[in-house]
């Protein structure tokens, strides 16, 4: 029989850097979970992506055991990486500060597809492209669809 789920906790934590401070401490501690156990496991599983902000969904069970799923970084974070952008443009409509290619948009869309409310790759790419434009990132080349 499946274990009773006591709580679902969604956080964004940097790879390899989970520690028992807020929000991890209070979120897990209040459920009676061993915070240190979570931190050690999370850090070991994300050690190849140190410092990257990673969404994590933690399932806490009735017996205070837990497991967790690590998702890919948010699209905006990936776009900033792809465009090698720091902090972004303060004037998105006037000053284009960086560019990405449609191939990069496709790569991000493919990775994020499971987390997006999109049924087709085109709609996922459109969504990522929209976020890019809001960030002042120009997408180079011909729109592929």
């Amino acid at each position: 029989m499946a274990k009773e789920v006591a709580a679902l906790i969604k956080l964004q934590v940097r790879g390899g850097a989970a520690n028992p401070s807020p929000p991890i401490g209070p979120a897990l501690g209040s459920k009676g979970v061993n915070i240190m156990e979570f931190c050690k496991q999370f850090n070991a599983r994300t050690q190849d992506r140190p410092g990257k902000v990673l969404p994590v969904v933690i399932t806490v069970y009735g017996d205070k055991s837990f497991d967790f799923v690590i998702k890919t970084p948010p699209a905006a974070v990936q776009l900033m990486d792809a465009a090698k952008l720091k902090g972004g443009s303060p004037e998105p409509n006037r000053k284009k500060v960086a560019t990405v290619s449609w191939d990069q948009v496709r790569t991000i869309a493919e990775e994020k597809m499971p987390d997006l409310n999109c049924f087709t790759m085109e709609s996922a790419m459109s969504m990522i492209a929209g976020t890019a434009r809001s960030m002042g990132i120009t997408i180079e080349g011909e729109r592929p669809f």
């Binding site: 969604k10 964004q12 929000p23 979120a27 902000v53 976020t131």
Partner: peptide
């Protein structure tokens, strides 16, 4: 999402949406 991306450049350790 954009704010989160921008804050990921600061020393903020973690986030809750």
């Amino acid at each position: 999402d954009i704010l989160l991306a921008e804050l990921s450049d600061t020393n903020a350790e973690s986030f809750v949406e």
